[in-house]
């Protein structure tokens, strides 16, 4: 918990620094993207520290492509056993 809050604080600091730079661009879209981006980033990093479930990229890719990948895998395995 301490770690999480420490990282939040640090992130806030980094965010403020970065925000100052983005402000100079005078683009609303950039500001919003940065803010939302930081929010998402914080969500992920905090859930990592607190051991909350985070979607795994591998599983996602696996779910979509595993059926197609299975034959490849089986074929390769057959060579490996030789």
């Amino acid at each position: 918990m301490v770690q999480a809050s420490f990282i939040c604080l640090l992130s806030l600091f980094i965010f403020l620094l970065e925000y100052k730079r983005v402000k100079k661009l005078q683009s609303k879209k950039d500001k919003w993207t940065l803010s939302i981006g930081f929010m998402i980033a914080l969500y992920f990093i905090v859930s990592m520290i607190l051991d909350l479930p985070v979607p795994s990229m591998n599983k996602l890719v696996g779910k979509v492509f595993q059926p197609v990948g299975e034959p490849f895998s089986n074929m390769l395995e057959s060579f490996q056993d030789q």
Binding site: G37, I45, P55
Partner: peptide, 21 residues
């Protein structure tokens, strides 16, 4: 976006977390 750099910092976090998991 106006500047590509805008999303760099949030991505450090996201990449790290996804790489860990």
């Amino acid at each position: 976006l106006k500047d590509y750099k805008t999303t760099t910092i949030p991505f450090v976090y996201v990449l790290l977390v996804f790489a860990v998991f």
